[in-house]
Simulated scan of single mutants.
Amino acid sequence: VINQGTVNIKTSSYTDCNAVLKGLQPVFQEQGMTETIHNWEDHGYLATYINKNGSFSNLRIYPHGLVLVDLQSYSDDMNGRDEIDHLLNKIEERMKELFHSSFKRIKRLPAIMRGEAIDRYWPTADGRLVEYDIDEVVYDEDSSYQNIKILHSKQFGNILILSGDVNLAESDLAYTQAIMGSGKEDFTGKEVLILGGGDGGILYEIVKLKPKMVTMLTSNIDQMVIDGCRKFMRKTCGDVLDNLKGECYQVLIEDCIPVLKRYAKEGRMFDYVINDLTAVPISTSPEEDSTWEFLRLILDLSMKVLKHDGKYFTQGNCVNLTEALTLYEEQLGRLYCPVEFSKETVCVPSYMELWVFYTIWKTRTE
């Protein structure tokens, strides 16, 4: 395991790069580290320090008042992290001595663990890196469609990750409730169509509400996802994935587009359509991105099988992706029939970000 520590130091005035270099040299020399220096005259210094045990440090000094220190240490126990913490403490103490009058800010980042057997770093939808408290790989398999991981988090429970995308954790009932209308709908005796939802969460919650029939129609969510969730996401799906058919539900593992086209041709209609296939794409080129084309097609087909007074629920994306969400709303004005929509923002625990959900319905006319 590689332990990587980082500290950023900001002073309030011009930095004497040579003074910083000479001031910090004894700190590294105490560790028995050899030194290599690059000097760019008016652009500061880069100094590299290497230890016999394989650890090393990069010291970058900028003349405009910024000093960056990165350290790496290899270890299969806590010694590597302790070594980094000790050295960073020494550097901070020395910098405060050198710049006590013009010292402005110091920021030490948590150590990054690289090369671990368990990957704990996953990006948010808007590109920020989140470190999860992952302590176990529960399930990790490649299907014909995607990589399927279920990782255990101490605070979120088991988390389903499909091809690097955090989908749902056992803690994320808020997501399931939001994509079902946040408790405002009466599903009793209703016909419901779920698109996607391979984790079984939506199906499990709706079956509790006594619908007439729920059809869950997957799209490229293969049997391995359902098998993995049935075994390791039972707090989310309960027992509904134990059998693909129950008293008031059926799960069809088929491409949803041909089935939706067939339903439309047959005149089959639903009170609710819940689309849990994919989030609004980050791409800002709807005409060129195949995911946008897929979303538009699903929207049009869903409207064709949605009753006139029915509702369509779907996720959007994280609240920070305002441009992508605006583009999605523009697509709603290009469907074969006029629609209206509302949206709400919900905090999904394992996403560690606010998420936008849409309710869409056909424009009511006399």
Rank of each mutant, 00 (worst) to 15 (best):
D77S: 15
M303P: 02
L332I: 09
A47E: 03
E30V: 11
Y358V: 04
K104W: 06
G246L: 09
K245I: 14
G181I: 05
K184H: 13
S55K: 08
T278D: 09
Y358A: 09
Y175H: 12
K107F: 03
G310D: 08
N39V: 02
D133G: 00
N3Y: 15
R81I: 07
F28D: 02
C248G: 11
E329G: 04
R262F: 05
A264M: 05
V130C: 14
N275F: 08
G316Y: 08
M233S: 01
N51R: 12
S144Y: 09
K311N: 13
L335A: 07
Y358F: 15
P110N: 11
K245V: 15
E344F: 03
D126P: 06
G198W: 00
A169E: 04
E35A: 01
G164D: 09
V166P: 03
Y145N: 12
Y351L: 10
A178V: 08
S13Q: 08
V192Q: 04
E353G: 14
L277R: 05
A279D: 15
A117C: 03
G5C: 06
L335K: 04
M269V: 05
N147K: 15
M352N: 00
N8D: 13
D300R: 04
Q155I: 07
I360M: 05
I274C: 10
A264S: 15
E116H: 03
Q4C: 01
D140Y: 04
I50L: 07
W122P: 03
L297N: 01
M33V: 03
T34I: 10
S342E: 14
T236E: 02
V138Q: 11
D186P: 04
K245N: 07
S75T: 08
S350G: 11
Y312D: 00
Q4F: 06
F156W: 07
S57M: 07
T291F: 14
N158H: 06
Q315I: 12
S219P: 00
C229L: 11
Q4Y: 02
D140G: 11
V138L: 10
R230M: 15
S75E: 04
I226T: 06
E35H: 00
L71T: 10
L203R: 13
E266Y: 04
R105L: 12
L203Q: 12
N320M: 14
N79A: 00
I150Q: 03
R262Y: 00
T6E: 06
L306M: 00
R108K: 14
R334F: 01
G157A: 12
G127I: 07
T48S: 06
G164P: 13
I206Q: 07
I112Y: 11
F28V: 06
K154H: 10
T345H: 08
K208H: 15
M233L: 14
I9S: 02
S219M: 09
E116I: 02
L98D: 04
I2F: 09
N243M: 01
R128V: 11
I161H: 03
G238L: 09
L21N: 08
T34R: 05
G44K: 00
F270A: 00
S55M: 08
Y132A: 05
D239K: 13
D82H: 11
F341Q: 10
P26E: 08
L71F: 09
L129D: 13
E330K: 09
L162C: 05
E247W: 07
S219E: 06
I282G: 01
N79K: 04
E131K: 14
